[in-house]
C-alpha cells in the first residue's frame, strides 16, 4: 500500500507557513516514517504527469498555514484523495498569546506548538492507514 502523503504549503510570508513545513517533516521523518511521506507541493502542481502521479488517487493529508488553503486546493486539483485538512493558524488559536517565532525561524514556544501539531497530524495518518 502506498504511503499517506502529508503535504505542507510551506508559505514563506509568515510563521504559519514555516510551522506547516516543520510539522509535516516531524511526521514524515520521525512520528510515522513507515506509513507517510511528503512531496514537494510546487512540483505536483507545476510538474508533468509523473509529478501529479505522486498524489493522484493517493490518500493525502494537507497542512496549510492560513485560510487560503493552498495545499488542500492544489492537492485536490492534482487528484489526491484528501483525508484531512489542517491549518497551523488554528493551532495558534489554541495557544493564544503564544509567540511561535517568524517565517525565518521558530521560537522555543514555536517548536513546542509544532511538536503538538505534528502529533495531531500523525494521529490522522494512523487513522487513515487503519481504515
Amino acid at each position: 500500500m502506498s504511503k499517506v502523503k502529508v503535504i505542507a504549503c510551506s508559505g514563506i510570508g509568515k510563521v504559519y507557513g514555516l510551522m506547516t513545513r516543520e510539522a509535516v517533516l516531524e511526521v514524515t521523518n520521525h512520528l510515522a516514517p513507515e506509513v507517510s511521506e511528503t512531496v514537494c507541493l510546487a512540483h505536483i502542481v507545476t510538474g508533468d504527469a509523473a509529478a501529479r502521479a505522486k498524489v493522484e488517487g493517493c490518500d493525502c493529508i494537507t497542512v496549510d498555514g492560513c485560510p487560503a488553503l493552498c495545499s488542500a486546493k492544489s492537492v485536490e486539483s492534482a487528484g489526491g484523495i484528501i483525508k484531512a485538512r489542517f491549518r497551523s493558524i488554528d493551532e495558534m488559536r489554541t495557544h493564544r498569546g503564544g509567540d511561535a517565532g517568524t517565517a525565518t525561524a521558530l521560537s522555543e514556544d514555536g517548536w513546542k506548538i509544532v511538536d503538538e501539531f505534528a502529533e495531531k497530524i500523525a494521529a490522522k495518518v494512523m487513522e487513515s492507514v487503519s481504515q
Binding site: 514563506i12 510570508g13 507541493l41 510546487a42 487560503a68 493552498c70 492544489s74
Partner: peptide, 11 residues
C-alpha cells in the same frame, strides 16, 4: 518582495 509560491499557483 516575495509571495507564497503555492498562493501564486493557486491564486
Amino acid at each position: 518582495v516575495t509571495l507564497c509560491l503555492p498562493l501564486y499557483i493557486a491564486g
